[in-house]
Computed example of a mutant assay.
Amino acid sequence: MGKPKKKDLPDLSHLCVPGAEIAVRATPKAARNAIVQAEGELKVFVTAAPENGKANDAIRQLLAAAMGTAGSNLELRRGSASRSKLFVYTGPA
């Protein structure tokens, strides 16, 4: 997927709170990788296809880059096969 450029992403560092739930509306196979904040929900666009977990991994990495944390600190709690997903931040404060 390539490393996302931090300047192209919103600053989501305020979400780095242990146990914080992050609701995401996913759009796989998009023209470009992007995160848009809208109506209390994050819309995440990734170029990866929704097969074999590739889109979920791409979303996790994009979210992590915007939050300034490692992808391993984000756990997909709900929605692995759905466009509506719920990630939980499990890393340090």
Rank of each mutant, 00 (worst) to 15 (best):
G40N: 07
A81K: 12
L62N: 05
K7P: 04
G68D: 14
P10T: 03
T69P: 02
F87D: 03
N73L: 06
A48T: 02
R78I: 13
V44Y: 01
C16A: 12
N73E: 13
V44R: 00
N56K: 05
P18V: 08
I59S: 00
R25L: 12
T90N: 10
A38G: 04
T69N: 10
I35G: 01
P10H: 06
L12M: 06
A26N: 02
A81S: 15
A23F: 09
K43C: 06
V24L: 01
E75G: 01
R78E: 15
A49E: 09
G71P: 07
R78M: 15
L9V: 05
T90W: 07
R25H: 05
S13T: 10
L86M: 14
F87K: 04
A66K: 09
R32A: 13
V44W: 01
K85S: 07
A48P: 00
R77K: 14
A34P: 00
A93K: 11
L63C: 07
A31M: 07
V24E: 00
S72V: 11
A66T: 11
A26H: 03
S84G: 09
E21H: 09
A55S: 11
R32L: 12
E75T: 13
A93S: 15
G91V: 03
H14V: 08
I59K: 01
T27N: 03
S72C: 06
K7S: 14
N52K: 15
A58W: 01
L76E: 04
L15V: 02
A58F: 02
V88L: 04
S80N: 11
M1W: 09
A26W: 02
A55W: 06
A30H: 02
D8C: 03
A30C: 08
L42V: 03
S13M: 05
R60H: 10
R25Y: 07
G68A: 09
F87N: 03
A49K: 08
V44T: 05
S13D: 03
A93V: 04
H14A: 12
K43I: 03
E51V: 14
A55L: 00
E21L: 10
S80A: 15
E51R: 13
E41S: 11
K29P: 01
Q37L: 05
G2H: 07
C16H: 00
G19T: 03
T69V: 15
P18T: 01
R60N: 10
S13N: 02
L62A: 06
S84W: 06
R60Q: 10
K3R: 14
A20T: 13
V46L: 06
A55Y: 02
R78K: 15
R78T: 14
V36R: 10
L9I: 07
P10M: 05
A65S: 14
A93I: 05
R77M: 12
A64M: 07
A23M: 11
R60I: 02
R25N: 10
G68K: 08
G71S: 11
K3D: 01
H14L: 10
F87A: 04
Y89T: 05
D57Q: 12
K54R: 12
R60C: 08
A66R: 08
P10K: 06
E51C: 10
A65I: 10
G40M: 04
T90S: 14
D8R: 12
T27I: 09
P92M: 11
T47H: 02
P50A: 07
A81D: 15
K29S: 14
P10N: 04
K29E: 15
L9K: 01
A34C: 08
S84T: 13
N73Q: 13
